[in-house]
Simulated assay, not measured.
Amino acid sequence: MPTDPQHADHKRPDRARWPRRVYGVGADPDPRFSMANERTFLAWLRTGLALMAGGVGIRALLPVGPLERALAVGLLVLGVLSAVGAFVRWAATERAIRLGRALPPLRMAAVFGVGLAVAGVGAVVLVLR
């Protein structure tokens, strides 16, 4: 970044950007870090969209039984959790980057690991019956 006085305001937080809880603290980081955080956010959104599409697909294409319904609802819930968790994770990570703090732990990994394992077992049962 240039260091001349004309560009000195790049270190001040931008209080007009939303959410203020994220952008109203610390200093603007190297843009590469913010862009990487944004790409991760978008990847979680794509994951959520795929999970929701899977839930809708199961409900639309399979006969309605208790296992099919549970699998469809489970995938839809995981998709919604992915979307909500993506925003929460993005904001916490961006805030930590701006404040020069350690990145927050990835809590969603355990939820998705267990959730997808259960969904996979349900899918195997559906295929084998």
Rank of each mutant, 00 (worst) to 15 (best):
P5E: 00
H7V: 10
A8Y: 03
H10C: 06
R12F: 07
W18P: 00
W18V: 02
R21S: 11
R21T: 14
Y23E: 13
G24Y: 08
G24L: 06
V25A: 12
A27E: 14
D30F: 11
P31T: 08
R32Q: 11
R32L: 09
R32G: 08
F33L: 15
N37T: 03
N37Q: 01
R39V: 04
F41Y: 15
A43N: 15
T47L: 15
G48P: 06
L49F: 15
A50V: 12
M52E: 12
I58H: 05
R59D: 08
R59W: 12
R59E: 09
L62Q: 04
P63K: 14
L67K: 02
E68M: 02
V73G: 00
V73S: 02
L78I: 05
L78S: 02
V80F: 15
L81I: 09
G85L: 09
A86Q: 03
V88I: 00
V88M: 00
V88R: 01
R89W: 05
W90K: 07
W90A: 01
A91Q: 09
T93R: 04
E94Y: 06
A96Q: 05
G100A: 08
L103Q: 09
L103G: 12
P105D: 01
L106H: 14
M108H: 10
M108G: 15
A109S: 12
A109I: 15
F112R: 05
V114D: 10
G115T: 12
L116D: 13
A117V: 14
V118T: 09
G120Y: 01
V121I: 13
V125I: 14
